[in-house]
Simulated assay, not measured.
Amino acid sequence: MSIVDRMQRVLVIAPHPDDEILGVGGTMARLAAAGRDVEVAIVTRGAPPRFSAADVARVAAEAATAHALVGVRRTHWLDFPAAALDQVPHADLNAAIGALVADVAPDTLFVPFIGDVHLDHQLVFNAAMVAARPRDGNCPQRVLAYETLSETNWYAPGITPTFAPNVHIGIADQLETKLAAFAAFASQVQAFPAERSPEALRALAMLRGATVGHAAAEAFMLIREVG
């Protein structure tokens, strides 16, 4: 039985809208197509004056479209300030993510990578790991960190943690769905050779797939699995 077969109830925690599609979009589509329960938590939401009300509403609508495309059953918005999680008391962030994990009770938790250059990603990783502590039988059975183009690849080798994937999930049949979901975030899509471009996202999926003999894949670091 593959690791995908063992995933029945999944929660993807994203610091910002579109992180979940960039990192886990194909896997979410594969799981949803197989009848698994897939939920997404978006930790932050933009707010004036850094983000206009119109832009915030647009991104929320884009997320709804993207999530429908990959089969997300429920989206949770935690509404912490985007690009300002360092100003939020750690206890508040830990409590919110902890309550969500307890409510969803996932067997599988996908989290951003601790070495991502964006501080919001690092703080969300830490809070998610607090929530996932194996203190009782209700903790997630497995925790995996995903990679986010324009964040994970900008770590400082030898100084910050390195993303060294040890789990690859084939998404050849879901790659076009993932790209369509990313395209739904029209406000975030950039022209190649920008990293947040369809071409770069396709190239990464093909590279990750080629390393394990698949046409396309998403790569993860397995943080913990409890049997």
Rank of each mutant, 00 (worst) to 15 (best):
95 A>E: 13
60 A>C: 11
73 R>P: 01
99 A>T: 14
117 V>F: 03
111 V>E: 03
110 F>V: 11
75 T>L: 01
107 D>T: 04
72 V>L: 01
111 V>S: 02
116 D>K: 03
97 I>N: 06
76 H>N: 08
104 V>G: 03
89 P>M: 07
98 G>L: 04
105 A>C: 12
79 D>K: 10
60 A>S: 14
91 A>E: 15
96 A>E: 06
73 R>M: 06
115 G>Q: 03
68 A>M: 07
110 F>Q: 06
68 A>H: 12
109 L>C: 03
79 D>T: 12
114 I>M: 06
96 A>Q: 10
64 A>N: 05
99 A>Q: 15
103 D>S: 15
95 A>T: 08
67 H>G: 11
91 A>F: 00
117 V>I: 15
118 H>G: 09
103 D>M: 08
80 F>V: 14
99 A>W: 01
81 P>G: 08
90 H>N: 10
95 A>F: 00
60 A>T: 13
97 I>W: 05
102 A>S: 13
81 P>E: 07
100 L>A: 07
87 Q>A: 15
74 R>D: 06
81 P>N: 07
67 H>K: 03
89 P>S: 08
104 V>T: 10
113 F>T: 04
77 W>L: 14
72 V>G: 01
84 A>Y: 00
110 F>M: 06
83 A>F: 12
75 T>C: 02
116 D>A: 04
109 L>N: 04
65 T>H: 07
87 Q>H: 13
120 D>S: 03
104 V>S: 08
115 G>D: 05
115 G>A: 10
112 P>K: 00
119 L>A: 14
119 L>D: 14
82 A>K: 06
62 E>G: 08
71 G>M: 03
103 D>C: 09
112 P>L: 04
86 D>Q: 12
93 L>R: 02
68 A>P: 00
117 V>R: 12
60 A>V: 12
84 A>R: 14
80 F>D: 02
66 A>I: 05
99 A>V: 07
83 A>M: 14
69 L>F: 00
97 I>P: 02
94 N>Q: 13
63 A>G: 15
121 H>V: 11
106 P>M: 08
95 A>H: 08
67 H>D: 14
100 L>W: 00
93 L>D: 05
117 V>K: 07
119 L>H: 13
105 A>Q: 13
66 A>F: 04
74 R>Q: 15
92 D>E: 15
118 H>R: 12
105 A>E: 13
76 H>D: 09
113 F>Y: 12
73 R>H: 08
92 D>N: 09
99 A>F: 01
84 A>V: 02
122 Q>M: 12
80 F>W: 05
103 D>N: 11
101 V>A: 06
64 A>F: 02
79 D>V: 11
84 A>E: 13
108 T>I: 01
102 A>Q: 14
62 E>A: 05
63 A>L: 09
109 L>Y: 00
59 V>D: 09
69 L>H: 01
63 A>N: 13
87 Q>E: 15
82 A>Q: 09
76 H>Q: 10
87 Q>F: 04
85 L>R: 02
97 I>E: 06
63 A>V: 11
87 Q>N: 12
118 H>A: 13
114 I>F: 06
101 V>C: 07
91 A>Y: 00
59 V>M: 11
108 T>G: 05
109 L>E: 05
72 V>C: 02
71 G>C: 05
73 R>S: 13
93 L>F: 09
66 A>N: 08
72 V>W: 00
97 I>H: 01
71 G>H: 01
89 P>D: 09
62 E>R: 10
94 N>R: 12
74 R>K: 15
95 A>W: 00
